[in-house]
Computed example of a mutant assay.
Amino acid sequence: MSYEVPDLTAVVAEQSHDLLFATVSGAHLYGFPSRDSDVDLRGVHVLPLAEVLGLDHGPETEERTWVRDGVEIDLVTHDVRKFCRLLTRPNGYVLEQLLSPLVVHTTDGHRRLAALAAGCVTSRHGHHYRGFAATQWRLFERTGEIKPLLYTFRALLTGVHLLRTGEVVAHLPTLLEELDGPDYLPGLVEAKVLGEHRALADVGGRPAPERVEADLAHWREELRVARETSDLPEHPPAFEEVHEFVVATRLG
């Protein structure tokens, strides 16, 4: 299940720097937005040479949160150099943003960079997804909300799929079908529609805590095994090509 996001093309036009791309991330990308979910808009801006070479350096990261047409929008963009530096490290966030199918704004540069993404996927991304899952599980233990529980499983399954295939799939319903994930998660996705911060305790037919913990232990182990047996390289083979892309984009 997914919900349409509002037309955000005007948001792109309002930015102070040219955008290489802008895509939607977060719960909409993961396949479990709530009726009251905000829209996580992510992208890359390109600082002009004057803001890179001069004394006053332009912003490497720009962040803004506001309400538009009744929807809260959370916008974060990185300068192309910072984004590509993250891309050549084991950072699943930027990979998912770059390859998100929910595209608000694209350019030739976006398409060229997306074509290099496969050469930036490494076995070390397993560490990213393991750490993200651990953080979300601690949040679930503290709040008891459905959202961090879904985020936990989403991170583990994305990591396993990535390490096995080299493909970035962030959409939880798709992952559940491909990896035969826990059968109660589709019901929790449906339940989350009613509220961004809905508690698991409020859901009828919810899984027993010991079942959830056993499933998490299973997928943590699957991620560990996938990391150890992955055919992916340890370091990104496209590093030099990404470097050349940054230089060409800046000069262009």
Rank of each mutant, 00 (worst) to 15 (best):
Q97P: 02
L95M: 13
G31Y: 06
P173C: 09
L87W: 05
L102P: 05
V71H: 01
Y30G: 05
V212M: 09
H161K: 05
H243R: 15
G92I: 08
D180L: 06
L156R: 08
L19S: 03
E51I: 06
P209C: 08
D183Y: 11
D40H: 02
L53F: 13
A115K: 10
D231N: 12
A226K: 00
R130I: 00
L95P: 03
T77P: 03
Y3W: 12
G159L: 06
G166H: 10
E145H: 12
T143E: 11
G131V: 00
Y3P: 00
P148H: 03
S2C: 09
T249W: 09
T106W: 03
V242T: 04
A22F: 06
L200D: 04
V46P: 07
E240I: 02
V5Q: 04
G159V: 06
R138G: 05
G166K: 12
L156C: 12
V242L: 04
V103T: 14
G119V: 05
G187D: 13
D108W: 07
K147A: 03
T65L: 09
G92R: 08
L176D: 15
V94M: 01
L53G: 02
V246W: 04
T65W: 11
V39F: 04
L98K: 07
I73C: 11
C120W: 01
Y184I: 01
P59T: 13
E221Q: 12
A226P: 01
L216Y: 01
A170I: 04
T23K: 03
D36M: 11
